[in-house]
């Protein structure tokens, strides 16, 4: 394994963003394509001062919502059949469609470009598998409150229990890519571990939803 492009100044500026299974690839931090600084997530304990459990739970979700509404999550949870792309969240270029399995049409599968790991010299994200969230799990255009209701509903969350949700957010490696998207993309706020802690705390406090 060779790590060929170490840019200490950049690495320092982004903190210890964990890389996904980016073997063989250059270790590089995101380019300043977005002004949206990727600030850390507040730990669950910082919400302890909120006495009402439902209010606290909703506040925890609101903090988690910073992750869910980040381009890294929304872009592959689109409303339509085309994913979004980039911090500007424009339609994916080249045009690709979800296809029967969420992995693209036969003519252009996601895996034609998205391989097992990021390829940073070309800013190409990668993970195996790489696919779109089902249409009923769209995040695009949803408020945090709407997302909360949607995400709790097994009909719109892929049939997941609350525990499954914590696991999906906290342990899924494709979700984890959102914190290590490679150069040219702003990572989701915080870390996957911090997001998992928030999700767990939200569930533990009754999984209440914020109100818009």
């Amino acid at each position: 394994m060779m790590i060929l492009l170490r840019l200490p100044s950049l690495i320092a500026s982004t903190g210890a963003a964990a890389l996904a299974a980016g073997l063989l690839m250059a270790l590089m931090a995101p380019a300043p394509v977005s002004n949206a600084a990727s600030e850390g997530l507040a730990p669950p304990a910082s919400f302890d001062s909120i006495k009402d459990p439902a209010t606290r739970s909703a506040a925890l979700f609101t903090e988690l919502g910073r992750v869910l509404t980040s381009p890294r999550c929304v872009n592959c949870h689109p409303v339509g059949d085309r994913p979004l792309q980039g911090d500007s969240q424009r339609l994916h270029q080249p045009p690709v469609y979800r296809g029967a399995d969420g992995k693209g049409l036969a003519a252009l599968r996601c895996s034609a470009c998205h391989q097992a790991a990021n390829y940073d010299p070309a800013r190409m994200p990668g993970h195996d598998p790489w696919f779109l969230a089902p249409r009923e799990m769209a995040f695009e255009g949803r408020t945090v409150a709407q997302l909360c209701a949607q995400i709790k509903n097994p009909a719109t969350n892929g049939g997941r229990s609350l525990a499954d949700l914590v696991h999906h957010i906290g342990d899924d490696s494709l979700v984890g890519w959102g914190w290590a998207p490679g150069p040219g993309r702003t990572p989701a706020p915080g870390t996957q571990k911090e997001a998992k802690a928030l999700a767990q705390a939200w569930v533990d406090t009754g999984a209440a939803c914020p109100v818009d």
């Binding site: 063989l24 034609a112 470009c113 390829y119 070309a122």
Partner: peptide, 13 residues
């Protein structure tokens, strides 16, 4: 068979 863009993939892949 399928096409692959060569510009976004390492040769070793």
């Amino acid at each position: 068979s399928a096409t692959r863009p060569t510009c976004v993939m390492p040769a070793v892949s």
